[in-house]
Design a protein around this nucleic acid. Structure first.
Length: 627
DNA sequence: GCAAGGTC
């Protein structure tokens, strides 16, 4: 029997061929520069048995939606794009060649086995491969097409995946197709409307090559930046007042903080201060309580892509894009698990200790790993996210760093240390708190003492939790202590900061805008479109909207849409994600979801067009306000 | 000329 295996990317095809072929395979080049075809034999067991195998790959998505030529820009009313037919096509020469290689290689195959990544997109890419293969070879059907399930490239795992395939999950395929169709219809329609409108109404305002694009991810991303900008600009600093006392005992000065919130009314604060000052012995305070409570600092949750990007941005100042690239390269080398995951909970049956064991020989953290094996192991915390495709990011093999790029080394170290931290105990400490009364007012001071570092021993680079530098003198309850200072102080509320990239990533992630692989691209896109510019502010850079970006958001926010739908807010996109999940779980069908959301977008389009002067007016307003 | 999603 002859089997054609197809992976999502060339690196996976190479690794899997190496494992299944046991190192004995021959390589042929294909009509695409990056893609190689590997021939070998492998015993799949079961009804397949010993097979001749060709392993190849595609380059991610290669078939996409295309509108027929009569719907090109300027040749139809954009509104028609919501219902125009869509055909499958190839965007460029490369994807056409990718398809050609699949068609050729499938010709003499008895079976097709899909080896794309095990996520929703992978399932859809698998279906594209199936379509091309079955068009070229009628013996390949959806029923006899196999789908390997794997989440990392460790040898025994890959062999097990080859021997226990399932079928393509069409529900996931339909969910992805639904998103694709809605995005191209709404994206093209609104982009043409906005571009043509703003160019004709604001002559000389926009350059010829400018595109004012709408996208279901671009707009909410822009919306986050604008919201923050407005909050900063509208911020008015307010003074507030508070009481503060400092004691002196054993020559140690101890600052006590008022337990009441700061007051925005000066008179009230002054009266309270005067009350205290009018007491006899107003230069003494009384210790009324003393506590010492055990406290913990929790170890981190199992590592997701976005968390990895956030930690790397904070600790190493790496961009989200660079972090993902480094992690992807470590994955294809078999060093860490699949780095695109939303799951922050390890599967119950996973043998974590075997992964720790592999790290015991490492010169930096081997000893620590050994101590976990020798009894200090503690089961990881469980988060509430699960993408049902990949476990949290964890190291697969032990690597001394030789031959790795600097960025890869950093990311590898982060992944290992994070994993070991997850399998350790929380840090333990004790928090001492002393309460003091001065007049009728109550003040407290506290100090932390770290007793057991536990996970922090391996995780110091990424998180600090230290004993307080200040020492609290040995106060006794009931004791009267001399005050060194007792003051009425004035403070000022400070404005929020402009949006940083790290914050924007966190917001997009929390709101389901884009995927781990595309979040960085959307941030890039709204800058290319000149909706947003990046400014340096001190040591970090922040994102602020341009006039165009402000104008668009203000314009859309001033149009009243049905059911309070907002195109610049994340809720619409989140709704769509929910609908897609329902397709995956079998509770809705692709046509149902498309009908519902196309109707909604059409209504929004009609209202936008009817109120197009609002968009123009708001954009002009922004320009005028800026002078 | 236009989206978002893969990957190179």
């Amino acid at each position: 029997m002859k089997i054609l295996c197809v992976a999502e990317k060339p690196s996976i095809a190479k690794s899997v061929a190496g494992i299944l072929g046991g190192g004995r395979f021959s390589v042929r080049s294909s009509c695409v520069k990056y893609i190689k075809n590997y021939d070998f034999s492998f015993n799949f067991g079961g009804s397949l048995g010993q097979c001749e195998v060709t392993m190849t790959s595609v380059l991610g998505n290669f078939r996409n939606n295309i509108f027929p030529d009569e719907y090109n820009w300027g040749r139809c009313e954009p509104m028609q794009l919501f219902t125009a037919p869509l055909k499958k096509g190839y965007e460029n020469k490369t994807s056409q060649s990718v398809a050609k290689n699949i068609a050729t290689e499938s010709q003499d195959a008895d079976r097709l086995m899909i080896w794309t990544d095990c996520d929703r997109e992978g399932e859809s890419i698998g279906h594209q491969i199936f379509e091309v293969a079955s068009e070229s070879n009628r013996r390949i059907t959806l029923e006899n097409t196999l789908r390997a399930q794997f989440s990392h490239l460790e040898r025994s795992h890959v062999i097990h995946a080859a021997k226990t395939p399932r079928h393509l999950d069409m529900k996931q395929v339909y969910a992805v197709q639904t998103r694709g169709e809605l995005d191209i219809r709404s994206g093209f329609a609104f982009t043409r409307l906005l571009t043509d409108l703003l160019k004709s109404e604001i002559p000389g305002g926009l350059e010829d090559k400018t595109i004012v694009s709408y996208g279901s991810c671009q707009f909410p991303t822009l919306g986050f930046v604008v919201d923050r900008y407005i909050r900063v600009r509208r911020f008015i600093s307010e003074p507030f007042w508070y009481l503060s006392v400092t004691t002196i005992k054993n020559r140690i000065h101890t600052l006590f903080t008022w337990t009441k919130p700061s007051m925005f009314d000066r008179m009230t604060a002054t009266v309270l201060y005067a009350n205290c000052m009018s007491q006899p012995r107003n230069d003494f305070g009384k210790i009324i309580a003393k506590q010492e409570n055990p406290t913990s600092n929790y170890k981190p949750l199992p590592l997701t892509t976005v968390e990895l990007q956030k930690i790397a941005a904070r600790t190493y100042r790496m961009t989200a894009k660079d972090t993902l690239k480094a992690a992807e390269d470590l994955y294809t080398k078999g060093i860490i698990s699949y780095p695109r995951t939303e799951t922050d909970k390890f599967p119950a049956k996973m043998d974590l200790k075997s992964f720790i064991q592999r790290q015991t020989g490492h010169r930096e953290w081997g000893q620590y790993a050994q101590s976990l094996i020798d009894g200090k192991f503690s089961p990881p915390r469980s988060g509430r996210h699960n993408d049902e495709a990949h476990p949290p990011i964890h190291p697969v093999s032990c690597h001394d760093g030789g031959g790795l790029l600097v960025k890869e080394k950093k990311i590898y170290e982060l992944v290992v240390r994070h994993f070991l931290a997850c399998c350790s105990d929380d840090a333990k400490g004790s928090l001492s708190k002393v309460t003091l009364q001065w007049g009728d007012e109550i003040f407290t001071t506290s100090a932390l003492e770290v007793k057991e570092e536990n996970y922090l021993e391996i995780y110091k680079q990424y998180r600090t939790w230290k004993s307080s530098a200040k020492k609290i003198p040995p106060f006794e309850v009931g004791e009267e202590v001399k005050l060194q200072k007792a003051e009425l102080k004035e403070g000022k509320t400070s404005p929020p900061n402009y949006m940083t990239e790290t914050e924007l990533i966190a917001l997009m992630d929390a709101n389901g805008i884009g995927t781990d692989a595309t979040i960085a691209e959307h941030i890039d896109k709204i800058q290319q479109r000149e909706y947003v510019t990046s400014l340096r502010e001190g040591s970090k850079s922040v994102l602020v909207p341009s006039e165009l970006g402000m104008g668009i958001v203000q314009g859309f926010d001033n149009i009243e849409f049905n059911e309070n739908i907002s195109l610049t807010k994340p809720f619409l996109r989140k709704d769509m994600e929910n609908e897609l999940s329902m397709i995956c779980s079998g509770n809705k069908t692709k046509p149902q979801v498309i009908e519902k959301l196309v109707n909604m977008y059409q209504e929004a389009y009609v209202l936008t067009k009817r109120n197009q002067q609002t968009l123009v007016r708001e954009y002009r307003n922004v320009i005028r306000e800026n002078g």
